[in-house]
């Protein structure tokens, strides 16, 4: 009974991905919207099997991210993320073109996030931006160790969470989304 929520969520996620992959399978007859009926039945069976296999992997206890408003905020988060991504890409491209004006180093980031989801989102955002990559993370205190291509003029080991990004403080956004 305990594993009913992870079973349902894994099944729904697998079925949605199957629907996206098999889109446009509708024929002349025997089809619902864009999918053919045999495809839907096979997809349902396969996603139930996936859900059964995945139900033990769930270890979460918090349900803060079950709020649909937070998912809306997560979609809005793409805008500041893309702005940061453009700046980071151009910076790294310029550094590659001009040569060895790089000051690499590993800094410690203490973002003060309260949830695992927030830590995951922040470290993933940092890693996807070229120029910064999360090397390690302390799972208890959620301190991140980040390798930067350019640590700045006056490098310090403990860096504030806002300084790692060029313009916008994505950590503040993530705190707004997940807490």
């Amino acid at each position: 009974m305990k594993s009913i929520v992870p079973f349902i969520s894994a099944t729904v996620a697998a079925f949605i991905i199957y629907l996206v992959l098999s889109i446009g399978s509708a024929g002349e007859t025997n089809s619902i919207l864009l999918w053919s009926v045999p495809e839907l039945i096979i997809g349902l069976i396969l996603s139930i099997i996936t859900g059964l296999l995945c139900r033990k992997l769930w270890q979460g206890k918090r349900y803060t991210m079950a709020n649909p408003l937070r998912w809306l905020l997560l979609a809005v988060y793409i805008i500041p993320f893309v702005i940061e991504l453009i700046i980071a890409n151009l910076t790294v491209a310029w550094k590659i073109l001009t040569g060895r004006n790089i000051r690499p180093g590993i800094v410690k980031l203490t973002p003060g996030l309260k949830t695992d989801a927030g830590a995951l989102l922040l470290s993933a955002s940092i890693t996807f931006q070229p120029g910064t990559a999360t090397v390690d993370i302390n799972e208890k205190t959620r301190e991140m160790y980040i390798h930067c291509l350019d640590v700045g003029d006056a490098p310090v080991k403990g860096m504030e969470s806002g300084k790692i990004f060029a313009r916008l403080d994505l950590a503040k956004w993530i705190r707004r989304i997940t807490e």
């Binding site: 991504l85 890409n89 790294v92 491209a93 550094k95 590659i96 040569g99 060895r100 790089i102 690499p104 590993i106 996807f128 931006q129 070229p130 120029g131 910064t132 990559a133 090397v135 390798h147 291509l149």
Partner: peptide, 20 residues
């Protein structure tokens, strides 16, 4: 960048340019 940067960790950033 993969060829130009000095060590493993800086090369990750160059590869990140392709990935993003």
């Amino acid at each position: 960048g993969l060829f130009r940067f000095p060590d493993f960790y800086t090369r990750i950033h160059a590869a990140g340019l392709v990935g993003s």
